[in-house]
Design a protein around this nucleic acid. Sequence first.
DNA 1: GTGGTCTAGACCACC
DNA 2: GTGGTCTAGACCACA
Lengths: 123, 123, 123, 123
Amino acid sequence: MEFRKSQTIYMQIADHICERILAGIIQEGERMESVREMASQTQVNPNTVMRTFSFLQEQEIIFNKRGIGYFVADDAAEKIKTMKREEFVKEYLPELFKMMQLLDIDFEELKRIYEQSKKAAAK
Amino acid sequence: MEFRKSQTIYMQIADHICERILAGIIQEGERMESVREMASQTQVNPNTVMRTFSFLQEQEIIFNKRGIGYFVADDAAEKIKTMKREEFVKEYLPELFKMMQLLDIDFEELKRIYEQSKKAAAK
Amino acid sequence: MEFRKSQTIYMQIADHICERILAGIIQEGERMESVREMASQTQVNPNTVMRTFSFLQEQEIIFNKRGIGYFVADDAAEKIKTMKREEFVKEYLPELFKMMQLLDIDFEELKRIYEQSKKAAAK
Amino acid sequence: MEFRKSQTIYMQIADHICERILAGIIQEGERMESVREMASQTQVNPNTVMRTFSFLQEQEIIFNKRGIGYFVADDAAEKIKTMKREEFVKEYLPELFKMMQLLDIDFEELKRIYEQSKKAAAK
DNA sequence: GTGGTCTAGACCACC
DNA sequence: GTGGTCTAGACCACA
């Protein structure tokens, strides 16, 4: 797994897990890979994975069965969506709107850029 | 001045200065506050302000006259716009589109949220 | 069976067994459920039950007849009471008194909380 | 500093800090020792202290000023009391009452043991 | 086998 | 100087 350096590794792993849960690749209630497994998969120190898991457990997205491993919580996908949406609206969008105003970009232009990027991705 | 913890302080100060330049509060060619003045205004370590100035100087948005102080470059506003726009399109928007897809938010909804936030700000 | 996470599972099972002995639900001299039975009842790994039994055997609360199973010792109830009382006075109470002092709780209030919890349990 | 092995070191340090705050030894708003200072004082690895601080920050008992250090929150003492009290009532007391019933100890006897332990401590 | 804690030591960005 | 992240490796209790 490749990591951007603009964000901490353990959070990138957390995001990656969340995306897999949202996409249904990991089912709710299912057992996660063990800390050591995920560490060797991602080529990362087990402590770093441990940190990811601790974070996700705090967010109640996964939970722990002692001696067995970590499991995806029943309402994990819902929790993730709520969390991400809140983050999006409260922290991300204000900056977006500010930037749009600053750069004189309106929603039409935004949409146009979006269509272009979709075409570019389709190649 | 209040700072978000998601970004470094010196960059937040840089952004703040850029906004003031774009808004015409600080004129091109005009002398900036001194490092010490700005440090005491923003309740921040002078080194941190120094770092902001160094960054803006690298971007050629301000320039230094030795022994006198920092001055806003003649084409500062234009430079800022170009810089911000590039940053916006290349780094900000891809993440935006990804988030929108992940959270099932379309442009209509985006606009709706925007209108709401404008009302909230108007209070 | 539900387990608190503040204590190990095998000790919680041990406590549960002790309580049943004190309450006379399991008679002294009587044979215990087998490790496997208890494991499936409590939804727990047989090794964990085994650990409980080993612990209780160390305390001479139960004993083993090879090939037959575990049996409650004749003076089990007495042993448990002695053990628990010692544990209570030496390890539990000092912490209780410290907490009471720290939180400004006196015996009157303790009693009051007790009465309340009894009412709540009576529902 | 000496540590019991029945609890994790980082939590014992956290408790110790909380007690010092409650006792007024560390004032609210005051800066804490740095991670490295406290690590060398307590003869513990800096990472362990870091863990303590992270925990206390989550509990909003201390907060961080970037590049400067950790500071005691304004309502730290109140937060600690609330937290400890809740923990005491919900997790500690139920066990106490159960034990008292099991061991036939009433509040009079509890008080008597308390007075004794106070005398013993006074020596 | 599992997670959890701890140590030692490195490197980094930031103040 | 500050905290924060990461690695490597050890040890432990528990299932």
